[in-house]
Simulated scan of single mutants.
Amino acid sequence: MARPDGDRSERMILIAWAGIVLVITAIVLAVRTRRTIWGRATGPAVADATRPNGTILMITGAHQWTIPLLADWQARGVIDIQKQGPELAKGERSGRSSGPEWIFTVLDAATVDEIELPVLQALVPDAPASGATFILTREDTATREALTASIIDARGRQRAAFGVRPVASRYLAAGLVALAVLGSALALAGTIAANFPRTSSGTNGVAWAVVAATVGIATVALICRGARRVTDAEREYWQRARNLELWVRTTTNPSMALAGWAMYWGHLPGPWIEKMPESITQLRGRDGAFLRGDVNKKNNYP
Rank of each mutant, 00 (worst) to 15 (best):
Arg235Gly: 10
Val211Asn: 03
Arg242Asp: 12
Val220Ala: 14
Val211Gly: 02
Ala221Tyr: 14
Val215Ser: 09
Arg240Asn: 01
Val211Tyr: 05
Asn243His: 07
Ala233Gln: 02
Ala233Val: 02
Ile223Thr: 09
Trp238Asp: 06
Tyr237Phe: 15
Cys224Thr: 12
Glu234Ile: 03
Glu234Ser: 09
Ala213Asn: 04
Val215Glu: 11
Trp238Ser: 04
Arg225Cys: 02
Ala233Thr: 00
Gln239Tyr: 02
Arg225Ser: 11
Leu222Arg: 05
Asn243Val: 06
Asp232Thr: 09
Val230Ser: 08
Arg235Lys: 15
Ala212Lys: 05
Tyr237Leu: 12
Thr214Cys: 11
Ala221Phe: 15
Thr219Leu: 15
Thr231Tyr: 12
Val215Asp: 10
Tyr237Met: 11
Val230His: 01
Arg242Tyr: 06
Ala221Cys: 09
Val215Phe: 15
Gln239Ser: 05
Arg225Thr: 10
Ile217Met: 12
Ala241Lys: 05
Cys224Met: 15
Ala218Glu: 10
Thr214Glu: 11
Arg229Tyr: 01
Ile223Leu: 15
Ala227Gln: 10
Val215Leu: 15
Ala221Gln: 08
Val230Asn: 00
Val220Trp: 14
Arg228Tyr: 13
Ile223Cys: 10
Val215Gly: 08
Glu236Met: 04
Val220Met: 13
Ala241Asp: 10
Asn243Lys: 05
Glu236Cys: 02
Gln239Phe: 03
Thr214Asn: 09
Trp238Ile: 01
Arg242Cys: 06
Ala221Pro: 02
Arg228Thr: 13
Ala213Phe: 07
Asp232Cys: 00
Ala221Asp: 07
Arg229Phe: 01
Arg225Tyr: 14
Thr214Lys: 08
Ala212Gly: 10
Ala212Cys: 06
Arg229His: 03
Ala233Asn: 00
Arg225Glu: 09
Ile223Val: 13
Asn243Asp: 15
Arg242Gln: 12
Leu222Asn: 06
Arg235Cys: 10
Arg242Lys: 14
Glu236Leu: 13
Ile223Arg: 05
Arg228Ala: 14
Arg242Pro: 00
Asn243Ala: 07
Arg242Phe: 05
Ala218Ser: 10
Thr214Val: 13
Trp238Val: 02
Arg228Glu: 15
Glu236Val: 08
Ala241Met: 14
Glu234Ala: 10
Glu234Gly: 09
Val211Ile: 08
Val215Trp: 12
Ala212Ser: 12
Ile223Asp: 11
Thr219Arg: 05
Thr219Met: 14
Ile223Pro: 04
Ile223Asn: 08
Arg240Gln: 14
Arg242Leu: 14
Ile217Thr: 10
Asn243Glu: 05
Val211Asp: 08
Arg240Gly: 02
Val211Gln: 04
Val220Lys: 11
Ala227Glu: 12
Arg225Gly: 06
Ala241Gln: 11
Val211Glu: 01
Ala213Trp: 03
Glu236Phe: 01
Val230Leu: 02
Ala241Thr: 04
Tyr237Gln: 10
Ala212Gln: 08
Glu234His: 06
Ala213His: 07
Asn243Thr: 00
Gln239Pro: 06
Trp238Phe: 15
Gly216Phe: 09
Thr214Ala: 15
Val215His: 08
Gln239Met: 08
Glu234Pro: 08
Asn243Leu: 01
Arg235Thr: 06
Gly216Met: 07
Arg225Met: 08
